[in-house]
Design a protein around this nucleic acid. Structure first.
Length: 532
RNA sequence: GCGCCUCUAGCUCAAUUUGGCAGAGCAACGGACUCUUAAUCCGUCGGUUCUGGGUUCGAGUCCCAGGGGGCGUACCA
């Protein structure tokens, strides 16, 4: 990538390309320029200015989207012409010159349509000005709707204006842009040339809208809670740390909004949800980006059974709204997201797959024996619950096709969930597993302040012993619980993973507009020292 | 973090069993063409083969180091 330095256009090229005289007798300089698409196009910008035309005008009054025109004239017969006038705006994506006739494809966000530019309508000067456009230019056009002899719906141009020049050549009009690195770094180009990319993000935008509407209709309040936090909590993850100058203290970027949302339930808001970014200072791979989007919702008086119903309804609703079906195909396997999803205990899933029966209530020695037998490593401080969770996590989950609600998680790995009445070693919690991945996580929220404080303290002890993922004691949260958190069901769902599911993408970067990447090196730019 | 793979024109890709003048399509530029659909036809231009070393008479190709990216793996949602 050689952006920065070459952005400086030599003065000479301006003069060379502006003058008709020098154009008639090409200089050596100009021949060099002709190889450089950017310089040629910058020359065209100068030419426009020389003619008194602003190549970057301030606005354009369009009166139709391209889709409007297509809908309205869907039945126009080949060769028919109308006197219906339209003003459209968009990018020129294809051009087919034909002497005294030029065809071009104009695209806006609703679709594309053919432009029909005839010398007999616009005159020689305007036709040649149009031919002088480049692929990628933004233009505003005015014309009448017609269908070509071959039946292609078209706009017969009366006039056009450049809205912004495209100085850089677009990638191959057929093959598009395939280089993954460039696609992610220059997403704007990816979006221009790759239909599939536009589709993926349309699904994403629609899914989030559908989700907001769905919560709104059910009386949930859309709330916003802090992203800069003083206390690490709400999930088990390593946080990003940044510095707040005014208070001269380090703060965390949130790893989950959970503890704030439940404070709002204490405050009596009863039904809340938040869709937003969370940040986890962990590795990057096809399923993980350091910043990702999740939705969390909390419902007073509900428990985790209610949240299961809510989750399966939400997921299937969003699927129908975005891709029109609840059936999705991932890696050749068809999965139906229509409810209800089966409920399976973690212990049963382990027994089915590995033919061993373990449970968090078992003596730790017995579970350790199973770990040994399965060749799994463990730490001395881990109890039966953590060991069971490890067995499930390492050996079982990846083979769960789902959708299935895995229930009865060990209390030891669920510091914010309420234990089941029948068995204090497991909690009222579920994870929605699809294709071996955790899509959602929910529980009957722990609302006993004394119990909660003990669990925080256990975490803080782990943190003091070097566990970077363990949280702090959130005294304010405990105080909130002392004011009374009603029985509450809460659920969190990873939106990026849901979009992967809906679009069949196997990499999370395909569903995030600007995924986290290493900084780009600009070859022509001197290295800027960035500290060490 | 570790392992494997990969990087050639603006874009998409070629370049023979360790090696022998770096090529094509699209885009661009010049020209022809009033119904094309990735228009077509004629002509022209375009390269630090990711970077730096090394082996060799000779390196896109082989070796070493570095960089970007992908996949797998670990932590994790």
């Amino acid at each position: 990538m050689r952006q920065a330095a070459s952005l400086q256009i030599p003065r000479s090229s301006k003069e060379v390309l502006m003058s008709d005289e020098t154009r008639a007798k090409p200089t050596a300089d100009e021949e060099v320029d002709a190889r450089d698409v950017r310089k040629v196009r910058m020359g065209k910008v100068d030419e426009l200015r020389a003619e008194g035309i602003d190549p970057y005008p301030h606005r354009f009054d369009r009166d139709h989207d391209i889709a409007d025109v297509r809908d309205r004239f869907a039945d126009l017969a080949a060769g028919d012409e109308t006197d219906y006038k339209v003003k459209l705006a968009g990018r020129i994506v294809l051009m087919r010159g034909h002497g005294k006739l030029v065809f071009a494809d104009l695209r806006d966000r609703t679709g594309s349509i053919q432009l029909f530019v005839s010398k007999s309508v616009v005159g020689a000067d305007e036709l040649s000005a149009f031919e002088n456009l480049d692929l990628g230019d933004w233009v505003g056009v005015e014309g009448t709707v017609m269908a070509s002899k071959r039946g292609e719906l078209s706009v017969k141009l009366n006039g056009f204006e450049v809205l912004a020049k495209c100085l850089r050549p677009l990638p191959d009009k057929v093959k598009g842009l395939a280089d993954v690195d460039t696609r992610f770094r220059q997403r704007y180009v990816d979006l221009v040339v790759n239909e599939d990319t536009r589709h993926v993000f349309n699904v994403r935008f629609k899914a989030i809208n559908a989700m907001r509407e769905w919560f709104h209709e059910r009386g949930y309040l859309a709330v916003e809670t802090p992203m800069l936090t003083m206390i690490q909590g709400g999930a088990t993850a390593r946080p990003f740390i940044t510095h707040y100058n005014a208070l001269d203290m380090d703060v965390y970027l949130r790893i989950a909004p959970e503890l704030y949302l439940k404070r709002l339930i204490v405050g009596g808001l009863e039904k809340v949800y938040e869709i937003g970014r969370v940040f986890r200072n962990e590795g990057v791979d096809t399923r993980h980006n350091p910043e990702f989007t999740m939705v969390e919702c909390y419902d007073a008086y509900a428990d985790y059974h209610d949240m299961m119903t809510l989750t399966e309804e939400l997921v299937s609703h969003v699927a129908k709204e975005t891709i029109g079906t609840t059936k999705v195909t991932v890696r050749g396997q068809e999965i139906d997201l229509a409810p209800p999803y089966p409920r399976e205990t973690m212990s049963d899933l382990i027994a089915d797959k590995l033919d061993v029966r373990v449970h968090p209530s078992m003596p730790v020695e017995e579970v350790r024996a199973v770990m040994d037998q399965l060749d799994l490593t463990y730490k001395d401080e881990w109890g039966s619950g953590k060991l069971c969770d490890q067995i499930y996590d390492k050996l079982v989950q990846e083979d769960v096709l789902g959708p299935v609600f895995v229930i009865d998680h060990p209390r030891e790995v669920s510091p914010l969930a309420k234990a089941t009445p029948k068995d204090p070693s497991v909690v009222e919690r579920f994870e929605l597993i699809i294709e071996g991945r955790e899509l959602a996580n929910a529980y009957s929220e722990l609302n006993d302040p004394t119990d909660q404080l003990e669990r925080f303290e256990a975490e803080a002890r782990n943190k003091a012993q070097g566990d970077v993922e363990a949280g702090d004691v959130d005294f304010d949260y405990v105080r909130a619980l002392e004011y009374g958190l009603p029985p509450t069901g809460g659920m969190g769902l990873g939106i990026d993973r849901l979009i992967m599911l809906l679009t069949g993408k196997t990499s999370i970067r395909e569903v995030i507009l600007f995924p986290t990447l290493r900084p780009e090196v600009f070859a022509d730019e001197p290295d800027e020292p960035l500290g060490d």
